[in-house]
């Protein structure tokens, strides 16, 4: 099939970017979206052009590397998929596809469709872990955990850190990302101990890095490739408010 691709090209963080239009004559509905971009890049190399740069690795929807705005939607059309899982069957001959990088201030564009998501790593460093040393772990069955709690924690933990939630949010908030981690640990006895401090530290870091506030519109949940629920944001708010009260109380003494 023949496609018209309008792709954001930007050579470096400092240079200005612009959309560039390419015609791809021999795309196939059997391709995945990234295989279609591979085909475009092969063509660009043949024409002595610089191929389009984009992050990708596992190509099975679990590493979280890939991510682009396709026709205005993070990871393109389709529910609960990553860009690498998007199939070209979602498009038809003659379509025009607009492809952009994540648009969010805390995720500056590095080149073409690649953005810098190191802010997510910094948020994780602010508290996305349980303070336990190797060697000090008790026997694993010491903590009995209800099946549904374990499953809910798993659901939160299935976040792949792709950044679609931030890209979907009009405020570029990272609340769903932070909530997924805080919620996973808050649901488990191992993580409960430090839960309030963790929520506080991660939210403070998120603010500091320039992510916006959450206004509960739910765009993040709608675009999350792993279907992570807004309910986790409610739990995060709960932990955060409690930690705020604790701090207030501690300050008075």
């Amino acid at each position: 099939m023949k496609l018209t691709l309008k792709i954001w090209r930007q050579n470096s963080p400092k240079e200005k970017g612009a959309f560039k239009t390419y015609i791809l004559d021999d795309a196939s509905q059997d391709m995945t979206f990234l295989e279609m971009l591979d085909a475009l890049n092969e063509k660009l190399i043949a024409e002595n052009e610089d191929p389009v740069a984009f992050d990708h690795d596992c190509r099975e929807g679990i590493c979280g590397s890939c991510g682009m705005i396709i026709n205005g939607r993070p990871h393109g059309p389709g529910k609960e998929i990553t860009t690498c899982q998007l199939n070209m069957k979602a498009f038809k001959d003659g379509d025009t596809i607009v492809i952009e990088p994540w648009r969010a201030k805390p995720f500056p564009v590095i080149k073409d469709l690649i953005v810098d998501r190191s802010a997510f790593d910094k948020i994780m460093e602010a508290g996305g872990f349980i303070n336990t040393d190797v060697g000090s772990a008790p026997e694993a069955n010491t903590y009995p955990i209800k099946t549904h709690k374990a499953e809910e924690a798993f659901e939160a933990a299935s976040c792949i850190g792709c950044g679609a939630c931030v890209a979907a949010c009009k405020n570029s908030s990272a609340m769903l990302f932070v909530a997924a981690k805080v919620s996973q640990y808050a649901l488990l006895p191992q993580g409960k101990v430090e839960s309030l401090q963790r929520a506080w530290n991660m939210i403070m870091k998120m603010d500091e890095l320039g992510f916006g506030s959450c206004t509960n519109t739910g765009a993040c949940e709608a675009e999350c490739p792993k279907g992570i629920s807004l309910a986790h944001i409610a739990r995060l708010n709960n932990e955060f408010i409690k930690s705020g009260f604790n701090k207030l109380f501690a300050d008075k003494h």
Partner: peptide
């Protein structure tokens, strides 16, 4: 488990 890896559980709460 101590690190918070959410392994599947039996109904009694054990792994």
């Amino acid at each position: 488990t101590a690190q918070g890896v959410p392994f599947a559980r039996e109904y009694g709460g054990t792994l």
